[in-house]
């Protein structure tokens, strides 16, 4: 009766119960927000326990919904507590602000991301761009990044339509989707990096 799935499920549910108990005892709003993030992890773990391709396809939307809700709640927390005027300082390390090292590391990450391609590649290339933006305080051009993100999203959707209606051109659709998601995730992550500056509206 106690096969691997049942044992895994029991462990995950017990950890979820522990997280919920912590949530009951904690009174500070910020700490409760952090514990809620902990509660999200068992819910992803239950999906992961399926251990099939389906689980992989289900985790991504689950994760995205969780992150979206967490971002929305932290934004409300900031306005609620009036914390909008606090500026986040950038990295004040001489090697990072003066030398060529950040550019070289960022270039390596972006190149490696291009080799990987797809979602993982986009995440790694985006990490490189974030690192560069965090290291060097330059005037960022948000419109350009947003436009690139929007166009690549459209290309991604186009690739899906090719898959659905013209399956014989699947290779073209695959390449379009791979390139588009790479650029899209890169653009998204680099935007996230730029938000660190706490721009004045």
């Amino acid at each position: 009766m106690w096969d691997q799935y049942s044992i895994g499920l029991a462990v995950v549910l017990v950890s979820a119960i522990i997280a919920f108990l912590a949530l009951l005892r904690e009174k500070d709003d910020l700490h409760r927000l952090l514990i809620i993030d902990l509660v999200e992890i068992p819910s992803l773990a239950v999906i992961a326990l399926l251990g099939t391709d389906l689980a992989e396809a289900l985790i991504l939307p689950g994760l995205v919904v969780g992150i979206a809700e967490l971002l929305a709640l932290s934004q409300i927390y900031l306005t609620k507590e009036g914390l909008n005027d606090r500026r986040v300082k950038r990295l004040e390390v001489e090697v990072i602000t003066r030398s060529h090292a950040p550019a070289i590391i960022a270039l390596l990450l972006v190149a490696y991301g291009l080799v990987l391609s797809g979602f993982t590649g986009g995440a790694i290339a985006g990490l490189g761009v974030i690192f560069y933006v965090m290291a060097r305080e330059k005037g960022e051009r948000f419109e350009l990044v947003e436009m690139a993100s929007g166009i690549t999203w459209a290309v991604w959707i186009l690739a899906f339509f090719i898959f659905m209606f013209f399956p014989m051109y699947w290779y073209l659709a695959l390449m379009l989707a791979a390139i588009a998601i790479l650029l899209k995730v890169t653009a998204k992550l680099s935007l996230m990096g730029s938000m660190w500056g706490g721009r004045d509206e």
């Binding site: 499920l9 979820a16 239950v46 689950g62 929305a72």
Partner: peptide, 28 residues
């Protein structure tokens, strides 16, 4: 309103745990 929205959001976020767990266990 923001305080209420924050508290409701926390309940909603915590509720995604039984929701996703239930759906995954249906598949399992």
């Amino acid at each position: 309103v923001q305080e209420a929205a924050f508290q409701y959001g926390m309940v909603a976020l915590a509720a995604t745990m039984p929701l996703f767990a239930g759906a995954a266990m249906v598949a399992a």
